[in-house]
């Protein structure tokens, strides 16, 4: 059973030889970027570079996937936000939104370009996916991701304005989220067509660290339900922060799997979602993977397995400065403690 088969079987609830260890979002390392001698800011705008760096975490460490893109600006750029790539910086800084498409939700006009496949950096991500399929697609699963509708809206409008509108202007917000969801469904279709085996939807902006469960249920969840009903399997819903307060709602959105981070007690997550749910998590992507010792990583792997995750996923993007020995410890621990009967 190779890495690809292992992950795909896990998604289908079929038996696997050991726990898969992969991710639904960023997992590139500086070891991968430096191998090619590229500046960090170059890898977001060139399909060849994007694909090679995305494949490098597998090629260097055996991490069982290749995922693009790396930054949260791809879709926002298509919807009219201006993205800063920090090309003046030589260290690790991810692109951010320099200027959102609108300041106020009232002024937001969402137009899906007629030729979406060629809008903004979507063709770059698509080409990178195709290249990955060719390069490592027989060995590992190829992944892509988008932000969830609320979090995505936070990339095209001022966030404080959005937060107030989520409370005060729900009818307008509902219209906006509906349009953003239609857009995301189209983008996902294009990514799947280009070679993505699975899609993760990251709705971290709508969790109980930020929005009330009541607003999540009434305003956000119906749009997530719709997205998951209209996209292909396998798919994953990811939310960071402590989400146990709404985990049943997340489990009901229709995703094949739910991904959580270490701020959740995953044992409680498992208890609430039941034995059949696919739960991915909950390795601390910074404090443990980057700052921890190999022994702490080993312990985190054991804990996650004991608490019942179906695959070991970092709870967030792996920070690229992760030490080589820590990536090796992660993979070693998964092989050693992840044997499933």
């Amino acid at each position: 059973m190779n890495s690809r088969e292992r992950a795909l079987k896990m998604f289908k609830h079929e038996p696997v030889d050991r726990i898969p260890v992969f991710s639904g979002y960023g997992n590139i390392t500086l070891h991968g970027v430096e191998k090619y001698g590229w500046n960090f800011s170059e890898i977001h705008t060139d399909a060849e570079k994007m694909a090679k760096v995305a494949a490098s975490t597998y090629e260097l460490f055996g991490f069982e996937c290749a995922v693009v893109p790396f930054d949260m600006g791809v879709e926002a750029e298509v919807l009219g936000s201006k993205v800063n790539y920090y090309s003046h910086r030589t260290d690790v800084v991810y692109p951010t939104i320099e200027k959102p498409a609108a300041e106020k939700v009232d002024d937001l006009k969402i137009e899906i370009p007629s030729d979406l496949a060629n809008a903004g950096r979507i063709p770059i991500v698509r080409e990178a996916l195709s290249k990955l399929k060719e390069r490592v697609g027989k060995e590992v699963v190829i992944g892509s991701w988008v932000l969830g509708p609320y979090t995505q809206t936070g990339q095209i409008v001022d966030l404080s304005n959005l937060s107030r509108a989520a409370y005060k202007k729900q009818a307008l917000m509902n219209e906006i989220l509906d349009k953003v969801s239609s857009f995301l469904i189209e983008v996902i279709r294009l990514y799947r067509e280009a070679g993505a085996d699975y899609i993760t939807i990251r709705e971290m902006g709508a969790g109980p660290d930020i929005l009330s469960p009541a607003i999540f249920q009434k305003l956000i969840k119906p749009h997530l339900d719709r997205i998951f009903s209209e996209i292909d399997s396998p798919n994953v819903l990811h939310m960071c922060g402590d989400t146990n307060m709404i985990i049943e709602l997340l489990g009901e959105c229709g995703a094949d799997a739910v991904s959580v981070e270490c701020k959740n007690d995953v044992a409680v997550t498992r208890q609430k979602l039941g034995a059949d749910a696919l739960i991915l998590g909950d390795i601390d992507a910074y404090s443990v993977l980057v700052n921890g010792t190999p022994e702490q990583i080993e312990q985190a792997v054991k804990d996650a397995i004991d608490k019942g995750v179906n695959a070991l996923w970092p709870g967030c993007d792996i920070w690229p400065t992760v030490p080589k020995e820590n990536m090796e410890a992660l993979m070693r621990a998964a092989r050693e403690y992840g044997k499933l009967s």
């Binding site: 107030r164 409370y167 307060m245």
Partner: peptide, 14 residues
């Protein structure tokens, strides 16, 4: 107490 969230706090600060 998880009765207020970020939007509520923003509106309080307004």
């Amino acid at each position: 107490q998880k009765e207020y969230f970020v939007p509520e706090l923003l509106m309080c600060s307004d």
